[in-house]
Simulated scan of single mutants.
Amino acid sequence: MKDLHDYSLLHHNTFNIDARCRRFIEYENVEEAQYICKNLSADDQPLMMIGGGSNLLLTADFNGTVLHSAIKGIEVMSDNEDEVKVRVGSGVVWDDFVAYAVDHNWHGLENLSYIPGEVGASAVQNIGAYGVEAKDYIYKVEAVDIQNASRVTIDADTCNYSYRQSRFKQEWRGRFLITHVVFRLSKTFIPKLNYGNIRAKLQEQGIERPDARQMRDTIIDIRREKLPNPAVEGNAGSFFMNPVVSRSKYLELMALYPFMPHYEVDADSVKIPAGWMIEQCGWKGRSLGNAGVHSKQALVLVNRGGATGNEVVELCNAIRRDVKEKFGIDIHPEVNIIRK
């Protein structure tokens, strides 16, 4: 277990912002997580749980205690001819787990390849990409209740998962230290090709019916082409959530923008890509101070070098105002903004 004071979080956030916390505690197993919960005091408040920091924007030093899981391990819980249930430590790097699953012919997560962060955060954020969400495969979440240091196992159905949301982000915020996530994966590979430019990318390679490894490699290629490397330009991937609007609002916009990309959600609602709207507002590739909008993907805000968290927030707010003015739609950050 690590227990450090006045600790820099520079290497714990992919925006590469050098903010500090009063105390940093890292646990390597369930028992250490329970020990921490039993010994937290009022002096440790407020608490902040982080994973890989790939969905985090720090706007100031954090005057509290940061808790981070370093629990590793991938363990098969049950296995039959149709599916496998696998228990994964919350500190496992997400893409390492996806690669492991593909190598073992466990299917479903291929479209979530190359998403930064750690497994524990996938259960909090309900990460998603290219038509797939983590909630589609999460079976249970194991955690320690900070209030009484007890171990709990939570069914996925109880987590109220929705688009980039869960009870861990709402009423359970700050209550649990996630230790493991149990996934239910299929032994049969069924490619999901109808989102973004997946089919076009496969056709470029002469692939009509991809296998799981080809699918994973294609998703990785797409993400590398569109998204900046955080080591070069600090970023948190997609900064905004794609808004879901009523069908009447969608029809109103289509009358004005007949080539507007969109994705059907259900009979009453449609998802509009926030990146497209941001680009239509002229923000793609532009900067505001040391913060900017990525030149290849307008959904991504970047640290051009030396940006503060507040500069990124100012850019975020300017973009939101312009999108609201042009389209009449509120877009909201997907990134967790930590304010002073």
Rank of each mutant, 00 (worst) to 15 (best):
A200G: 13
K140L: 10
G285T: 01
C159R: 01
A99F: 13
L9W: 01
R320N: 12
N16Y: 13
V312M: 02
A298Y: 00
P191T: 04
G306W: 06
M241L: 15
H107K: 10
F24S: 07
N13W: 07
Y163H: 06
E314P: 10
S166M: 04
R339G: 07
T14Q: 07
A255Y: 13
D3C: 14
G328D: 02
E133S: 11
K192Y: 12
S122M: 09
R22M: 11
D43S: 15
F240M: 00
D136R: 09
S90W: 00
E311T: 01
S122W: 08
V88Y: 07
P258M: 08
L315R: 03
A149K: 06
E334H: 05
D61M: 05
T218Y: 03
D43L: 14
N290P: 06
E208G: 15
E83L: 15
I25C: 03
A134F: 11
H332T: 15
Q165C: 13
G196T: 00
A33W: 04
S90G: 03
G237H: 04
V312E: 01
G117T: 06
L58N: 03
L9R: 00
E26P: 07
V119N: 05
K324I: 14
L301Y: 09
V144I: 03
V88F: 08
C159W: 00
Y263M: 09
G306K: 08
R209S: 15
R304P: 08
I190P: 14
I220L: 10
V232C: 11
Y114S: 15
A231N: 12
S166Y: 03
D103Y: 12
N126I: 08
R320W: 11
S162P: 09
A291Q: 03
V313Y: 02
L57T: 04
S287I: 13
G289E: 03
L256G: 13
T158C: 15
R23Q: 05
K324R: 15
K326S: 00
W276R: 00
I198W: 02
G120W: 00
I115A: 05
Y137A: 04
Q214V: 08
E204Q: 09
E252I: 10
R167C: 14
E75Q: 14
N229T: 03
R20P: 09
I154G: 08
S113A: 09
S150T: 13
K85P: 12
D322Y: 07
L112G: 03
D322P: 08
V152P: 05
F259D: 15
H5M: 14
P333A: 03
K284E: 02
G305T: 06
G275Q: 00
C21T: 03
P261Y: 04
E32T: 09
T179G: 07
V76A: 11
V270E: 07
D221T: 15
E133Q: 12
L253F: 06
K85Q: 13
C281T: 01
A236N: 02
N242D: 02
I278T: 02
V312P: 01
M1S: 10
V102R: 04
G108N: 04
S287A: 14
D6W: 14
